[in-house]
Amino acid sequence: MSDTETASPETKSDDPWKPGSANLRLLQEIDVRLSVEVGTSQVKIRDLLNLNEGSVVELDRPAGAPLDLFANGTLFARGEVVTVGGRFGVRITDIVAPGERVKDI
């Protein structure tokens, strides 16, 4: 390539993970499992067997606290419940820093 020619944006790869790069385009069609956690609780099997319709299980998180969003089991964001057209949804309020994601593994 001569000094007057420049690489096209498609072939230049300063950052292989920036939006529009070939590497990122390859990954965009991969399915991931997105799950939302309201809270957790540890119970004994005997208590689990006694649960029935109307039972209440106390969670480890206060009401109004942000929900945890997981992609394939890895915490990546926090959010809040919203309704969209009569269905529940989650509004993302905070993206977890990459260092924090690794810490949870």
Rank of each mutant, 00 (worst) to 15 (best):
K44S: 13
P16M: 08
F70W: 04
E29K: 14
G89Q: 04
L51E: 05
L24Q: 13
P62H: 02
A22Y: 12
D31A: 15
K44R: 14
L69I: 08
L75E: 04
P62D: 11
G79W: 02
E37T: 13
D47G: 02
L75D: 01
A63E: 14
L34V: 14
K12G: 03
D47H: 10
L51C: 06
P62S: 07
L51Y: 09
L48N: 06
L26M: 15
F76W: 12
V57A: 03
G20N: 09
E5Y: 09
V38M: 13
W17G: 02
R78P: 00
E58P: 04
N50P: 06
G73D: 10
I30W: 00
D68M: 07
L26Y: 07
V90I: 08
T74F: 03
I45C: 01
R78F: 01
T6H: 13
R25K: 15
F70H: 13
V82K: 09
D68L: 04
G64V: 04
P66V: 01
L48H: 05
D68W: 01
V32L: 10
E29R: 15
L24T: 11
S35N: 09
F88H: 10
S21A: 14
A22E: 14
S41G: 06
S35A: 10
L59Y: 07
E5H: 12
P9R: 09
L51V: 05
L59A: 07
T83H: 07
T40Q: 15
R33V: 10
T83Y: 03
A65V: 05
G39D: 00
F76L: 05
L24M: 12
Q28T: 14
T11P: 01
I30V: 15
R33H: 13
G73Y: 04
A77G: 03
V56P: 02
A63M: 09
L67D: 01
P9G: 04
I92Q: 00
L24N: 11
D31N: 13
A7G: 12
D68T: 09
D15P: 00
P62N: 04
R33W: 04
T4Y: 08
G39Q: 06
Q28K: 13
R25H: 11
F88P: 03
D14T: 10
G86N: 05
T83E: 05
G54I: 06
K44N: 13
R46N: 10
Q28C: 12
G20R: 04
D68N: 10
R25V: 11
E29C: 10
I92A: 04
F76N: 02
S8A: 07
D68F: 02
D15K: 10
T6S: 11
G54E: 03
P16T: 06
D14L: 12
R87I: 00
L34W: 01
R91Q: 12
P66S: 06
T6Q: 14
F88Y: 13
F70Q: 09
I92Y: 05
W17D: 12
D60K: 10
S55D: 08
W17K: 07
L27P: 03
A7Q: 14
N50E: 13
R61M: 08
A77V: 00
L48Q: 05
R33Q: 14
A63F: 04
V43A: 13
E37G: 06
V57M: 03
V32Y: 05
S13L: 15
A71E: 00
S35H: 03
D68V: 05
